[in-house]
Amino acid sequence: MTDLSITEADIGKPFPVRGDNVKKQEAIANHVLSRLTNIKGDKLRGKTAVVTGGSSGIGLSIVQKLAASGVKVLVGDVQPLREAVEGVLYMQTDTSRWEDLLSLFKRAVKEWSRIDIVIPNAGIGDRGDFFDKVDESGDPVKPKFDCLSVTLIGQMYTVKLAMHYMRRQVPQGGVIVSTVSRAGYVAESIPVYGAAKHGMVGLMRALRPLTKTWNIRINSIAPGITDTPALRTLPDLVPKLWQSGIPMNTSDDCALAAVFLCANEDYNGNTIFINGGKFREVESGYERHLKDIMGNDKRLSLSREEKKMLGEWIRSMFKMRAETSSKEDIFTPSSKY
């Protein structure tokens, strides 16, 4: 867990990192790139992006920053963009529906022939499904869990589609940056939303050892309380939060972290926590303390041969056909992250 000082000037060239996974994570977290003087440099120029939930709030700020960096952007959302962004395309998309997302990705491929960046950002808040609601007979009412449908399943659909198209384009590869929220690490009194965001953190951790096979990176941003139109629907809440001294972000703070992760190729399997406009990489801390948490778990220190054997078992369990050679076993964690 290391504080970062990210500014608009910190989108630059990657740097070589050697050593074990924990050292790599710490080196990445401590390194602030400063070779370019403007986010509009050619690092991202000409690339293409699909952004879900990009019509307002954090998503819109990400769209604006990507567009300002020379990225061609397609937004999928249930509502059009609150503010027009020159050159940005929009397609009405319900991210809880696989069919809508599939159409969105097909549109992007039709427009540009490839997808370089995917931002799974669409989500909705907790709907109080764990409140003790009863029907006229006094029986508990079946919860709908709409939050899970959009915030977890919808984002998982988006990641699945991103990987599908990034694996099959030439050249292979791309980057996925999900919005997971502080609730992906600390969920206080928001059980369904917290479960959804923890699920996205778990998905990133499960995929990050595997994605090197296709030159795909997967990262996350975890914003704390952020001043967005959705939050401002609650009367007087935002001014009171700012006045109280509780750390608050702007949407632009969150967008800067997301675009930073898009631009820097050494970041894979990382999460940047944004709190009061300050940035901290948190997965390095998780990696560093994993053995303290899990105790004497032999699976944390498997040999390459043992990992391969475990991969073969997983493959047979899911009845999956190997799509790569034995030298690029998709179930053997890589040393990329």
Rank of each mutant, 00 (worst) to 15 (best):
A108W: 00
V159F: 00
D297H: 11
M320P: 03
P229Y: 09
K106A: 10
Y193Q: 04
E283W: 07
D236G: 09
P239N: 11
L241E: 10
K160C: 01
P223F: 03
V186T: 13
Q243T: 10
R304F: 13
K72H: 14
A9W: 06
D252C: 09
G269L: 07
I330K: 08
E136M: 14
K327M: 12
G285Q: 10
G285K: 10
S303F: 13
A68Q: 15
I11N: 03
K336I: 07
N268F: 05
P235H: 12
V192H: 02
N38C: 14
D146G: 14
E136L: 14
G276M: 11
R217I: 04
E312D: 15
R304Y: 14
C254Y: 04
L60G: 01
V50I: 15
Y337A: 13
M309F: 08
V17W: 06
T211E: 04
G285R: 06
H164E: 12
D252P: 10
V78H: 01
V201Y: 01
S113D: 15
P235V: 12
N296S: 13
A122M: 02
K106Y: 02
E305T: 15
L152E: 01
E8P: 12
Q172L: 11
C262H: 05
R167V: 02
V85G: 07
M91H: 11
L152K: 00
I58T: 03
W112C: 10
E281P: 07
G19I: 10
D10K: 07
V180F: 03
F273W: 08
S334L: 08
S334Q: 08
D126L: 06
L102W: 02
V85C: 09
V85S: 07
L36N: 14
K13S: 14
T52R: 00
T332I: 14
Y337N: 11
L237N: 11
Q25E: 09
I39L: 13
A183Q: 06
K144Y: 09
G224A: 10
M91R: 15
D236C: 09
D139S: 13
T233Y: 03
I293S: 11
I124M: 11
V71A: 04
T332D: 07
G53Y: 00
V192P: 01
E265G: 06
D116C: 06
V78G: 02
T151P: 00
R35P: 03
I314Q: 14
L104K: 00
P209K: 08
I190W: 02
R127K: 12
S55R: 03
N270C: 12
G87F: 04
F279H: 09
F279S: 03
P229S: 08
W112P: 02
V75Y: 00
Y193S: 05
A29V: 10
V159M: 06
R97Y: 01
S55M: 08
G184Y: 04
Y267R: 08
D135E: 13
L104S: 01
T179E: 04
I11F: 15
R321H: 12
V17H: 10
F279D: 03
I246L: 15
V159Q: 01
G59V: 02
L81H: 05
L36K: 14
G174S: 08
F318C: 12
D129S: 11
G70F: 04
A196Q: 02
P247G: 10
